[in-house]
Design a protein around this nucleic acid. Sequence first.
DNA 1: TGGATTTATTGAAACGGTTCAACTCCTATG
DNA 2: CATAGGAGTTGAACCGTTTCAATAAATCCA
Lengths: 342, 342
Amino acid sequence: MTTIRDIASSAGVSIGTVSNYLNDPELVAPETRKKIQEKIKEYNYHPKAAARSLKSRQTQRIGLVRIISPEDYRSTDPGDNAFLELLAGLNTMAAENGYDLLISAAKNNEEELKTYARLIGSGQVDGLIVMGIQRKDERLPFLMEKNIPFVAYGRSETEANYPFVDVNGAEGITKAIKYLSDLGHTKIAYITPPEGLMCTQQRWDGYLQGIEECNLPFHSDYVVEGAFSQRSGQISSHLLLDLPEPPTAILTASDICAFGAMRAIQSRGLEVGKDISVVGFDDISLADMFHPSLTTISQPFRKIGFELMQSLISVISGDNPMPQSILNPDLVVRRSTGRVLS
Amino acid sequence: MTTIRDIASSAGVSIGTVSNYLNDPELVAPETRKKIQEKIKEYNYHPKAAARSLKSRQTQRIGLVRIISPEDYRSTDPGDNAFLELLAGLNTMAAENGYDLLISAAKNNEEELKTYARLIGSGQVDGLIVMGIQRKDERLPFLMEKNIPFVAYGRSETEANYPFVDVNGAEGITKAIKYLSDLGHTKIAYITPPEGLMCTQQRWDGYLQGIEECNLPFHSDYVVEGAFSQRSGQISSHLLLDLPEPPTAILTASDICAFGAMRAIQSRGLEVGKDISVVGFDDISLADMFHPSLTTISQPFRKIGFELMQSLISVISGDNPMPQSILNPDLVVRRSTGRVLS
DNA sequence: TGGATTTATTGAAACGGTTCAACTCCTATG
DNA sequence: CATAGGAGTTGAACCGTTTCAATAAATCCA
């Protein structure tokens, strides 16, 4: 195994010079640079990450903890498709900046915190990406207190200031309502994400704003608390369709939830996009494949991944200690929505 | 930042003893053990991974390189849902054994090899998981030559022996053919995965064996080379349905491919599961949600992840230098298949 | 021409663990 | 009673980098 000493002696320089070359080639005279370069190639030398980070206290690694429930082996639903896309974004941007991603599993929130403590304590990562932010999220104060660089995907209600990237869920919902209203819909139902999540609050604001801007009446029967799952979409839709005056359009918490809604509608012999319009949220790649294809509010997951990683790197480097960005979602119109039947 | 020295001096022992405690508490006398334990808790001490691995040459990290094409931002199709499930398995088993997962991105195969070289050379990982094995896979000899522990997900045609976990794709296809044959189907078409992949070869063997065991005639028109994509399923199915004597059942390369096939069938006013039966491969969670729900050959991705990680750990520890296991897929019967119309 | 400044290089001291030969007590054994 | 063996502990060397004060050589400026 070649070390910096081998390179140094074979190139006829000191290890300090090789180290300089490694960290900033400009510091080394052109001829020396060339010699070292050649030897590194010849020996196929890679500086050992452990030695490097022991001294420099940098790891070039970004941590990400994923909660995986051990009970059901099929828990990862297609909504995680979004996670994968986000991961692709994180990975790409990380690679571009010379970072790798360290992914650790935790069984639950408690274990998650312990994993953060371990990752930080053992100095395995330079920073963390924190996902699935809750309205009150204990991870935020925990990480701020430890003073470790992190960026959260999502805002929370914490009064404290922290770096985040978020999607403007409110605007997404408002856009969808305007679009439906333009198609003539007035009875627009809304299956919300579960209480407690920050995005639920945001989207709710968007819902209220949407119906206000479109001068639609507020109908508490048309709002059902649901979840991201297909099952939730199905159950909630049945509830809505059982109303004396059922809605003509349903906004859902996620694309998966929308698929459930579509199934409920179809099971009653109604046609999606004609009798009832359905709008999803996320724009996972299946939205386009479903039959009928799904009109949905598109979250740019890959871009979110980019943004998260870029922000984190700027926090680590100190360039920008408090990056906060909010991305706007787009409404992607497909076949699951249509003009209201007169 | 607390170090082993702080713990040692505050507990009134030498650093060697603390190190012993860290690596094997049995080596330390019970009272000493207790003292050290307390101090570690008091200081919330975590041994630094860098220092540890510098000397011990172990990282407790497993590497995984993922190829991400930068061009299209929506490349990660739902088939990757399988990848995510596998990742969950890897992560869980890794965590149970005190390992973390280091995930790196590469733009293409060439960069992938370079990333392997870097990860190994810089001593960042104890072993590697290698995915998407090809019939001739340059990564295998590369890694064997480097003498780094790895386990591949899939067999290849390399004459050399290496550790792997694989799914018995042949048996899956054979099972599906027997099932369809029992339903009365004799005209069974097959959309194969792309040439070059090892699984294509294996499944092909399974196809041949299936039609032989069921005494079905071989019909070269019924075999179409396709891909895993929905598009491929759509195009290939149209080809098949245009035949003078179209098949009554279609085996596909993946669930996504099957969705494409279903769409093609539906677009011709035919009913899936009645006029034409469709069988997928993978059993991604969407298979169950689609309408009609998809009969498919189920790959136990989570379990594959477990198996891969367990095997890798046994390679690393030297317990078993050459674990090779083949998991059997199951046929999951849903609504996309039915008795042939007489 | 001589001192000041810049450029390039050096060597040794960290960084925070692990490892292992050596040492000290005890206890068991013949 | 002498000795061997085991259990528990110690301290120093070492892992492969980075860092930085010190030095040497080259260049600049008055």
